[in-house]
Design a protein around this nucleic acid. Sequence first.
DNA 1: CCTGTTCGTTCAGGACGTGAACATTTGTTG
DNA 2: CAACAAATGTTCACGTCCTGAACGAACAGG
Lengths: 408, 408
Amino acid sequence: MDSRRLGELNEAAALGHLLERGPLTRGDLRELTGLAKPTASDVVRRLRAAGLVRVVGRTSRGRGPNAEVYAVDPDAAFAAAVSVRAKDSTLVTAVCDLAGEVRARTETPVDFAHADAAPAVHDAVRVAARRAGVALRRIGHVQLGVPGSVPEGAEVIHHVDVPGWGRPGVVAEIRKRLRTRVTADNDVNLAAVAERRHGIASGVDGFALLWLGEEGLGLAIDLGGTLLRGARGGAGEVGYMPVGLPPAGGVHDFHDLVSGSAVRDLARRHGIRSRTGHAAVTRAVSTATSEATGTAAGKTAGAAARTVDTAASTGAAADEFLDALAVRVAVGVAVVVAVLDPPLVVLAGEVGRAGGGTLATRVERALRELSVLHTEIATTGVREDAVVLGALDTSLASVRRRLTGLDP
Amino acid sequence: MDSRRLGELNEAAALGHLLERGPLTRGDLRELTGLAKPTASDVVRRLRAAGLVRVVGRTSRGRGPNAEVYAVDPDAAFAAAVSVRAKDSTLVTAVCDLAGEVRARTETPVDFAHADAAPAVHDAVRVAARRAGVALRRIGHVQLGVPGSVPEGAEVIHHVDVPGWGRPGVVAEIRKRLRTRVTADNDVNLAAVAERRHGIASGVDGFALLWLGEEGLGLAIDLGGTLLRGARGGAGEVGYMPVGLPPAGGVHDFHDLVSGSAVRDLARRHGIRSRTGHAAVTRAVSTATSEATGTAAGKTAGAAARTVDTAASTGAAADEFLDALAVRVAVGVAVVVAVLDPPLVVLAGEVGRAGGGTLATRVERALRELSVLHTEIATTGVREDAVVLGALDTSLASVRRRLTGLDP
DNA sequence: CCTGTTCGTTCAGGACGTGAACATTTGTTG
DNA sequence: CAACAAATGTTCACGTCCTGAACGAACAGG
């Protein structure tokens, strides 16, 4: 540890504050870092020389000269994210600048069965970069979101349905081609990152995100901003969680209870016929909700009447279906709460989102009857593609960490 | 950040290495910290002046002058631990020096119903310190181990059976009386700390410790050395974990499956009668094991014969009982593995220890049949009182952190 | 226009750290 | 046994970074 290193640390601290709190004057920086006036000037000078920070204006408050306002140069670095979507065979790619502004977003259809992963990703990123007007070289990190278990640091992805992506060394190949830092993570984990940054879990100490997808079930565990991955990246593989004792027969694991098809079948048994689970839930919620808020829905009287017409007989059925589903979900949540005690559980995925507040409330109620332990339950607050959003955040965080010297 | 602070950081780094790797020469220190020769000398000088480091000898390897060997002064600071044991109404107290050497260990019977917590703990620590020949003032940290949930940083303990210990502010009162840093943690968590330092989980990335106690059930989750506590300190309250679906009736939570009395009853149903669960397991293991290793047990032929005599008819019963128990335990483990994916699950507590390798093997087998996911399962490797040992480690770690300036 | 504030720079000084040179000790070797 | 090689630890000159105080300059308000 050298005096030089000391300087770097101070630079990093200042840059960190600029990244987190936006434009600042030298005075602000002085206060935040605790540095002396001349030193603050020095640090800013160095950051500007490095092309990381720019003058973006001047204050005009009070008397005395107007202080210069500094901000991180958005063009100083870029980050990219790629979401591997099995369900519609596309790579969704996004590029953002150092300020977090999304510069481009593309969707590339890929025939995973016949195309190699590495060239496909390389192409997707190249196209997105071009559209963003950014040289590929300037992208500091590419974060992949994959539907599978990704062990910490390891380069193999387990339980992937996408052909070619389960092969050892995929990530390394992609890295070699892109010549950047490339990391992969489970898509539900990335959705949780988005939930923390842009969703309902922004201020929370930690939370568990239960992904009730049409094609997959998952649990992401956020502990104060870091995700729990498990030894083989298998943390949150709740689909395999046994429910019920083995000799009892019938229901065996959580997947049998709340997978897309299980939900669809449950709905069917309550007289609600749909092609997918989340469609069934959407319909059930609309009838159940319109019943409950029927009297208050003065403005949408016409719509309400129409709904009641078609659902008159199914209103009670919808209620029963939702309650039955809530109990099933609550069984899983109860286990998670007993093991992890998260302050918040977020329901996401197609089914979770379709259930909305209606389902969340019922799950919370069911949980109270099922277990002494309880916790707050909410629905996802992320509107856009949570996986891409989360991957972009993760990617950007990595770029920032390296700029601030916290990463090698 | 000042030059002074830079010096402190280097001191801290050197001290840290001395604490972790034992006695070192200036040369070793130079290599480990990357400092220049004169600076290393300087750092050592400062550490010696602060009374933290002592010369403990000289090398005599190779040519050149013999280097001085430095080590942390064991008497530079002390740490204490107190285990609150409800089952036999005692406070077990231990004091160790900065090197980790236990200097004293006492057991004080306390009538929790009539004695206040703070004075009782104060007395216990005072006595232990005197026996260790250490002034109370020199004890830098007191770590309490309590059978209850302790939220991170909060001062209330939930779900405690010990009278007076559930009252808000207990920890603060104790702190006020002892005039030191005082923290409290769940006893199972502390047992996990001991498991990592002195037990079977020494080199592992992380592990889950399933405490199968006669009077309590718990799960400690170790993630690379830090323990997961949960929002309300309720992480690992697996006793409340629901097993089976609600309408199914009968078995409701994990506690009903593997608590001490549940184990005892299960044994009884297999014809093994004991007053406690772990006694039943001990007997079952001895018969089951002697059967399996009967031929190889040449030396203890007499003992084996005796065992076979009394167990001839119960050998099969013992096997069945152990397998049934293993399945029950495996249900809980399967859930933990699905949620957390730990590289290792350690069985501890009276029942877990009684089960030994025999039970661990059977649980591992049962798990394989129950779930796709699996993990290594082992029995606790801690011989002594794990709670006190873990509390002492935690306490010492806190003292060291403060010395190295990592803690405020 | 003067005055009090606030911004940013200049300046002298302090704390640390570094590399090179040097004295010193100690084992090896011819 | 003397010469040599290798390792230890100190001294010295110099560099980097940070600090407090003083200073000049810009700006709002009376």
